[in-house]
């Protein structure tokens, strides 16, 4: 039996503590990153850096913008499903305690379906990492642990949303709190660094008129 006060602590106070640690760690990581020297390209631009950045971010929703995702379209579909699952689980950590009326049974089931699909994709990711020699060659314990941790998080989230018992809620929110503290140290952090990387890549490609292609003159 989970007492009401313990459940409340895990759903509110513990989440706030974990989120604070999470935010501080990321703030430190970002400060550490932006303090590094960033050589600026001063050559006159032949394209538009802002358009380059827009294009750079558009690769997220356009699998045909890269050969890799065009060729491996299923991998892009996996990416979409997996991240929709993660987004649903994260959203549930806010909506369950702060907007409980919104989380009626049908809504919880919709969330659970997204999360369940994400979990299925997660299993295929683990199998691929074990089966593909190129991936196995570069994989480190954190790669496997992160995938398994997300898998456990998905199962806890789906279980909580479907059964909605005190026990499932306690497990889900406890795992969420542990997850929040581990994520800044792990490769799951890619979603924060991704913003920076796409901006820098977009600026360079845009300035140089590579992507999107510059408009030719003297014609």
């Amino acid at each position: 039996m989970i007492s009401e006060s313990l459940l409340h602590f895990v759903e509110f106070e513990l989440q706030i503590i974990a989120l604070t640690i999470f935010a501080i760690l990321y703030a430190l990581k970002i400060v550490q990153l932006v303090k590094l020297p960033m050589p600026r390209e001063v050559a006159p631009a032949s394209g538009n850096p802002a358009k380059g950045v827009a294009f750079s971010f558009s690769t997220l929703i356009n699998p045909f913008s890269m050969d890799s995702t065009t060729k491996h379209l299923w991998r892009w579909m996996e990416f979409l499903i997996y991240h929709l699952g993660a987004l649903s689980a994260i959203l549930a950590t806010f909506t369950l305690p702060f907007a409980p009326k919104m989380m009626a049974y049908p809504v919880r089931i919709v969330f659970a379906i997204f999360i369940g699909l994400g979990a299925i994709v997660g299993i295929s990711k683990i199998i691929r990492r074990l089966a593909n020699p190129h991936l196995r060659y570069v994989s480190v314990p954190d790669d496997y642990f992160s995938l398994i941790a997300v898998e456990i998080y998905f199962i806890a989230a789906a279980g909580c949303l479907v059964y909605f018992t005190d026990g499932w809620r306690f497990v889900f929110f406890l795992i969420t709190a542990l997850f929040l503290v581990y994520v800044p140290f792990s490769k799951i952090s890619h979603y924060v660094f991704w913003f920076f990387a796409r901006i820098y890549l977009g600026i360079r490609f845009g300035r140089r008129g590579i992507l999107p292609k510059k408009r030719l003159q003297h014609g």
Partner: peptide, 17 residues
């Protein structure tokens, strides 16, 4: 540098694409 730091960080998830 920032670019090397970023590309050496947990940005890469070793997806193999």
């Amino acid at each position: 540098s920032r670019l090397v730091g970023l590309s050496s960080s947990n940005l890469c998830v070793r997806c193999g694409l």
